[in-house]
């Protein structure tokens, strides 16, 4: 484990150094919220955001991507994405989501080459949380405002400087490579980090979800679902903003005379998601679709991957147009 500090003023130097051989993505305020965006040395980084509007999954599993083109000479797979990408500023909850997505996309038998290539090329410098939002609940589900799982380096904002700690060998090598830009932390800076992390932890909302998996299994047919799902409008906000939702579809399209195969994210909230070729649809009502999403996250993935696929980022709560709150839904079905 390596420790180092970098002053916020000198982040530009790190960005410039990284940009010589790869890309550097960091938090940028675009007016409508902070987004993970490619930056160059002179760009202003936003460091006082709660979280990105969009989850980082899109960096590895884009909203849509062309995976092959086909013409008279057959099908040609899109070359794998190359080049190192340094992702700075992802929050610990979102970084944990990548550990879960790895279980899906880096399966031993069916690894996804595009996802794997992007993961292999990435160096992730996560940024610990200072001020959780009222919608945050990561500490209720394996997370922490300074959680390290999934990150190569954890950065903690302690005023004028960021304190970096390597988590993986990749992170340690990165810190060695750019060692000239880093200083040794003082004992005071290390203790200030601990105080900051504890303060953020204390502000976090707590939800009890210990029983959720077993209760969901038992309460699949519970009448409570009707009431819980009644106000769901049936949009895909929760799924597309969720850092762990990973369903996709494959589509053959013709664009400008070129035939191509596209992989695009899909959402179980939409009726067409389960529409079968026969015309039969096993999930006819909106309530059944919302229930499925809850079951998938808190029951099926727990059973098949050993993990609940929720990291407590709260995006689905914040952005739901009908103010459906996943914490309440869990509490209600766990009764």
């Amino acid at each position: 484990m390596a420790l180092g500090v970098i002053s916020k003023e000198h982040l530009g130097k790190l960005i410039a150094a990284v940009s010589r051989t790869g890309r550097f993505l960091g938090p940028v305020d675009k007016g409508d919220g902070v987004c993970l965006t490619q930056v160059s040395a002179g760009d202003m980084l936003a460091l006082d955001y709660v979280n990105f509007i969009l989850p980082p999954k899109r960096m590895f599993f884009p909203r849509s991507e062309v995976i092959a083109t086909h013409g008279s000479d057959g099908m040609t797979a899109t070359p794998l994405p190359e080049g190192r990408v340094v992702l700075f500023g992802i929050r610990p909850c979102d970084v944990l989501s990548l550990v879960y997505l790895d279980k899906v996309f880096l399966d031993e038998k069916y690894a996804d080459p595009y996802y794997r290539s992007r993961r292999d090329n990435a160096v992730i410098i996560s940024l610990a949380c200072r001020q959780p939002a009222p919608t945050c609940f990561c500490t209720s589900i394996k997370g922490s405002p300074a959680g390290k799982a999934g990150a190569d380096i954890l950065a903690v904002d302690i005023g004028d400087v960021l304190l970096l700690e390597s988590v993986t060998a990749t992170g340690e090598a990165f810190m060695a490579e750019y060692g000239k830009l880093l200083d040794k932390p003082s004992a005071e800076q290390v203790s200030s980090r601990q105080a900051q992390v504890a303060a953020a932890d204390a502000k976090m909302a707590r939800v009890s979800i210990d029983q959720a998996t077993a209760k969901l299994r038992a309460r699949f047919d519970a009448a409570a679902w009707d009431e819980l799902t009644a106000r769901c409008l049936g949009c895909g906000v929760c799924t597309f903003l969720c850092p762990t939702c990973h369903c996709f579809g494959l589509y053959d399209e013709q664009v400008g005379g070129q035939n191509r195969r596209v992989r695009a994210q899909d959402a179980c909230a939409f009726p067409a998601f389960t529409l079968e070729a026969s015309g039969h649809n096993p999930r006819t009502r909106q309530g059944m679709r919302m229930r499925h999403r809850m079951m998938h996250k808190f029951c099926y993935t727990a059973e098949s991957f050993g993990e609940i696929f929720c990291v407590g980022c709260g995006r689905c709560i914040r952005s739901c147009p009908a103010n459906l709150d996943i914490r309440e839904t869990l509490t209600e079905v766990s009764k």
């Binding site: 969009l54 909203r63 049936g234 949009c235 895909g236 906000v237 597309f240 903003l241 147009p321």
Partner: peptide, 8 residues
């Protein structure tokens, strides 16, 4: 992002 929240 084509979540169709506007439509729904």
């Amino acid at each position: 992002i084509r979540c169709y929240a506007c439509r729904q």
